[in-house]
Design a protein around this nucleic acid. Structure first.
Lengths: 110, 110
DNA sequence: TGAATATATGAAGACTTGTTCAACTATGAG
DNA sequence: CTCATAGTTGAACAAGTCTTCATATATTCA
């Protein structure tokens, strides 16, 4: 049995990001892990949009969209700007599209 | 009310990736959206490891690890090579670490 | 002020997911 | 062949998630 020494395994443990970082990373990806949200992000990468417009594009009711917007807002991936009765949403982070494109290039290559 | 024409909204719809692609993208990110799995991927980015070794590093029982390995294998992110009684796992895709690092660079900047 | 519009929110329900436990397969050692 | 070890798998359960519905807030307009 060519079992690695426990000491060697401890070294691997030291080389990977620390638990908290890995947890945060998973939390971030979890947000991208819903097609409603990725669709919203895709739309907002093209132009600013208010909730009704997003709801129309996604063909969903406003409430459902609003709930997802809240999650994206909490994660600081988008921001909402109040304009009268409307709230206009836009991307709040230049990494967002980078991460999406990373994923897309993976998908393309299969 | 400065409502965008529905026609204009349809144009946005045309510009974003098609539904199937967005769905696949979300499915991919869903896989990264669990800290056990991101940890496994981190470990395998350093060296090949068998199931027992992963279980020891993660401090989890083998069954739990094996279940997650199955998901990662199904997504073609890792591959398992049988070596006697053991199965040695390694990354199966050069995008994996790219995507992880994309996410990490986002986290670092807050 | 009162009605209408745009958005947000809380609770409920259906659905999904991760871990545990027990049982199973497969390989190698004696 | 039999036993021990490594890994996989299925069922069950708890925990979490997404959408819907009803209601609440906020802003504009008449």
């Amino acid at each position: 049995m060519k079992k690695k020494l426990s000491e060697e395994l401890q070294n691997i443990k030291k080389k990977i990001p620390k638990d908290e970082t890995i947890y945060d990373l998973a939390e971030l990806f979890k947000i991208f892990g819903d097609s409603t949200r990725t669709k919203i992000l895709s739309c907002l990468s093209i132009t600013k949009l208010n909730v009704s417009e997003l709801a129309e594009i996604l063909d969903m009711n406003m409430s459902a969209v609003s709930h997802q917007l809240r999650i994206l807002r909490a994660a600081k991936l988008i921001k909402g700007e109040k304009a009268g009765k409307e709230v206009i949403y836009s991307l709040d982070d230049n990494h967002v599209m980078l991460i999406m494109e990373c994923g897309l290039s993976h998908i393309d290559e299969r």
